[in-house]
Write a protein that binds this DNA or RNA. Structure first.
Lengths: 201, 201
DNA sequence: AAACCGATTGACTGGTCAGTCAACCAGGGA
DNA sequence: TCCCTGGTTGACTGACCAGTCAATCGGTTT
């Protein structure tokens, strides 16, 4: 066996993955540390070997994922594409994140970004960074004359991100259908709605 | 004194109002029932005289306010105004709700509508009713040819509501400025963004 | 003035759980 | 062979807190 000093399988990862499932299923507050340990198939105490506290487990999950999001937004902005295409890239990344790992995205959104009064409070700066990056895309679009200027860029960024997150919420809580086609449609429609508006041109 | 069988001041109301302040300040989970009693200036046990549990206090706050919102949306739809004006009325009502009682709206949004995995779960049907009513406004607009038809009405409703709620979140957590002018602007800009889009016409 | 009754009080209890820790186990080196 | 070290175990504890309840208060009724 390849056991040795390095654990057979990465137990730390195993615990994180179990936490995603349990947090998604029960919510952070309703989750006992013992639930995570059970789900991961490890002893209670091992969770505390790898993490300082229950909070730190969620922390780790959030930071891990959010840094990817921030990188993706900044990456989207780096390409010389149109502002509209940049927004499409951002929406696309978030939607694909959900498609790829709905449980993790549920945890991130429900337990962190939408829990800004409890757990999310610590992460407000990082969350804000995402809004700011989106606002920058809009502001650049305005400077280039592609977007109207009477809508404040920060405002537009909140509206855009809010629409995206609400959509994920709808999928998460099964308020709206969530098939592969819906995901693809959503990317396009989100940008169509925000850029073109509901009224016909 | 006007004490009599009817309490001097409505203690029940006094407890609810105190709960709004404490929930807004600390969040529902971090709030002890004793915090509510202290804030209200009544004995611990009295909370349980008027409410079955801590949950029921939040319940009451939510139901009270959400029914107003539902009524307002349906009222807005009843007027023979344009779909756009109807959306403006809805956005206006929500924004004014926040202007009038930011702490209560903070509690409603942060602890209920955005906490659908924990407390909000019970209220998903009522929350959904709001989305549906907004979707109906959009659908009627599409039927009348005022709104484009390639954007699904349910989808548009989620995007619209998501944008509104995200805006309130921004105010709540001081991510964006919240003056009276900002509130008035927001009503117009929300609808302008969703109906006209960011790209110039 | 005495019985009555709902409002009000706050000490207390029972259960829950995050986090601790002493013991155990297995691989690797001496 | 026998430590040594670091991963692993799970029983235990100390704190915390929602909810209970017996006692008290004060106005009303007879």
């Amino acid at each position: 066996m390849a056991k040795a000093t390095a654990p057979a399988v990465d137990k730390r990862r195993q615990i994180l993955d179990a936490a995603i499932r349990v947090f998604a299923r029960q919510g952070f507050y309703a989750t006992r540390v013992s639930d995570i340990a059970d789900e991961a198939g490890v002893a209670y105490g091992l969770v505390y070997h790898y993490f300082k506290s229950k909070d730190e487990v969620l922390n780790e999950l959030f930071v891990e994922r959010w840094s990817l999001l921030l990188a993706a937004i900044e990456e989207a902005d780096r390409e010389g594409a149109s502002p509209r295409a940049k927004l499409e890239a951002v929406a696309g990344f978030i939607v694909d994140s959900y498609r790829h790992d709905p449980e993790l995205m549920k945890v991130i959104i429900v337990e962190v970004t939408r829990a800004a009064n409890s757990f999310g409070r610590t992460h407000l700066p990082e969350i804000r960074r995402a809004y700011d990056s989106i606002a920058k895309i809009v502001a650049d679009g305005q400077a280039a004359g592609v977007f109207r200027r009477d809508v404040d860029a920060t405002f537009a960024s909140m509206a855009f991100y809010g629409a995206v997150e609400q959509l994920l919420s709808g999928w998460i809580f099964e308020l709206i259908p969530a098939s592969d086609e819906d995901f693809d449609q959503a990317k396009v429609l989100l940008v169509a709605t925000i850029c073109d508006g509901l009224e016909p041109r």
